[in-house]
Amino acid sequence: MMSDAPRTEADEDLLQYPAPPPVVHYAEQALLGALLLVPERLKAIGPLEPEHFANTAHSALFAAMRTVSPPAPEVHRTSPVWPNQLLAAAQPQARALTAAYLHTLISICPTDAHAPAYAQIVRSGHARRVLRRHAGLLAQAAHAPGPDPAGAALARADQLAVYLDELVTTFSSHRGSMPRIPPAPAPAAEASVEVEDEERMLLATAAAHPDHLPQMRWLHENDFNVPAHAALFACLNALARRGSPVDPITLLWEAQQRGLLRDGLGPTEVLDLLAHSAGAPEHWGQKVLQRALLGQASAVAARIEALTTDEATSVHQLATGSRRALSALSSVRGRWQQATGNLAEKPAARQPAVPRAPAVRTPAARADPATRTPSRPGR
């Protein structure tokens, strides 16, 4: 008979969830029950690793199944050698495992012949969790300080793209592979004082040096956080494209012709905004564009996290929807490479990678705004 230690409070908490367990939890139980009944099923379940299990006790038990050789079939039919060996091997990593729980796993399994189907459900659950983790790391990189926040966010985006490629090849497509559209992420918080100041400095320096505007086509109106600043930047570009004189007065007239001088934005406010300039427009433009890139990365992460919360969405649908969300970052990325001179930059080679938490780095000193040569800005 299998040895059975006295039940403890840990046994009761072994597989407790704050809400009803997800479906994949029952698939994990059924798979392990099938393998306890018929160890030979291990050869038929396909590629599966202990880390594919969401529950740590299940993971430890499956790891033991991978390392402990099962007895001969005739011995297994008449003696509990296999369960006892597994329990002894797994308990150091999952002390709450008991013989009674192994009996529960066996009783939950409808039929051991369906072990490959249970394993595929386990793989699907793992894929969903890893995709959510990648999205979380992308969001973290988009908000973390550092000497090169844009580079860190784009590196995370590359890792996410690698994983999406893996999912597309691992999980087959089916009819209706496009996912349901999740709710749009919450709107971004109001622009901070620092953001507003950087956009003001961009407008002031662009008005003072309008000859730089044709070389700044990498900056778009929708990169701005403040709508009034975006509208004034459009006015500057319109004047420059027409070859019209550009100065605070002509900009003020253009803004009036476009109906912008209302809702708190009057002539005095526009002239005050343009009164003080320092540095080059490219320097401030890169700062604005970098914030837009990080904001887009954060929005992509939020969209993917929203996709993964819908349990009715298949893994292939998750991969398809996530790729579409990630493509929104490509346009901003291309403009960022153009702005910083990294036109030869290519995404990292698509090798499978396990996401790791990014190391916290000391923020770099703020770039000198007086520098006229564009350089990769710090935050």
Rank of each mutant, 00 (worst) to 15 (best):
S298N: 11
S298L: 10
A299R: 08
A299N: 09
A299H: 08
V300W: 02
V300M: 04
A301G: 07
A301D: 03
A301C: 07
A302I: 01
A302L: 04
A302T: 02
R303L: 05
R303P: 00
I304P: 02
I304Y: 00
I304D: 03
I304W: 01
E305I: 06
A306E: 01
L307Q: 00
T308S: 04
T309N: 13
E311I: 08
E311R: 11
E311M: 09
E311P: 07
T313Q: 04
T313P: 03
T313F: 03
T313N: 04
S314V: 02
S314P: 05
S314G: 08
V315D: 02
V315A: 00
H316F: 04
H316E: 04
H316R: 05
Q317I: 02
L318N: 00
L318K: 02
A319T: 04
A319S: 05
T320W: 00
G321K: 00
G321S: 03
S322Y: 00
S322N: 03
R323T: 08
R323I: 09
R323C: 08
R324D: 06
R324E: 07
A325R: 00
L326A: 06
L326N: 01
S327M: 11
S327T: 09
S327Y: 09
A328F: 09
A328V: 07
A328M: 10
L329D: 00
L329R: 01
S331K: 12
V332C: 09
R335G: 04
R335E: 03
R335A: 03
R335Y: 01
W336S: 04
Q338L: 08
Q338E: 13
Q338G: 10
Q338K: 11
Q338I: 07
A339G: 06
A339H: 01
A339P: 02
G341A: 06
G341R: 05
N342W: 09
N342Y: 10
N342F: 11
E345Q: 13
E345L: 13
E345V: 13
E345I: 12
K346H: 15
K346L: 15
A348P: 06
A349P: 11
A349L: 14
A349C: 12
R350N: 07
R350T: 06
R350H: 10
Q351F: 14
A353C: 11
A353M: 10
P355D: 06
P355S: 07
P355F: 03
R356T: 12
R356M: 12
A357W: 12
A357Y: 12
A359Y: 10
V360D: 14
R361G: 11
P363C: 07
P363R: 06
P363H: 06
A364H: 04
R366K: 11
A367P: 05
A367I: 09
A367W: 06
D368Y: 08
D368I: 11
D368W: 09
A370E: 10
A370T: 13
R372A: 12
R372T: 15
R372N: 10
R372H: 11
R372G: 08
T373R: 11
T373C: 11
